[in-house]
Amino acid sequence: MRRVKPASDERTPDGSARFAVPSREQLLAVHPTDRDDAIIIAVDGDIDVLTAPRLAAAIGAAFDRLGARPLVVDLSRVGFMGSSGLRVLRESATEAVRHRGLAQLRVVVDHARPVIRPIEIVGLDQVLALFHTVEDALTAEPR
């Protein structure tokens, strides 16, 4: 997803202050870690229309410096993922393999139902290399 969303969490159209508005940072934390053998992006929080562009940006930036290393996206601390997050994963997976000649995107999903269920409904489990732990993702043979 290349489009940058407006920072509309800073205002409400009706000027109302009735809503306890969470910031993007409260909803989603994205922490990339560069290692010799991989880049790991740890994601913590909710991936929705507000926060998905940040995940897309982090994955895109990791692609730029990835080289021959695999990219592991750790979603085991994600509590919610909707179609906006699915779209980021789908587009990132396509970008890696088709356009950049990178290894298949490795995604850690644990047993978190709110994450694995939408992935399975739209069939992304066929496109992503899914693992239960970061360790499994790091030691897997390239597919």
Binding site: P13, D46, L50
Partner: peptide
């Protein structure tokens, strides 16, 4: 009722 705002999906959830 929620405003037309990008945070509204999270509030609805």
């Amino acid at each position: 009722t929620l405003p037309v705002d990008w945070v509204s999906p999270s509030l609805a959830r």
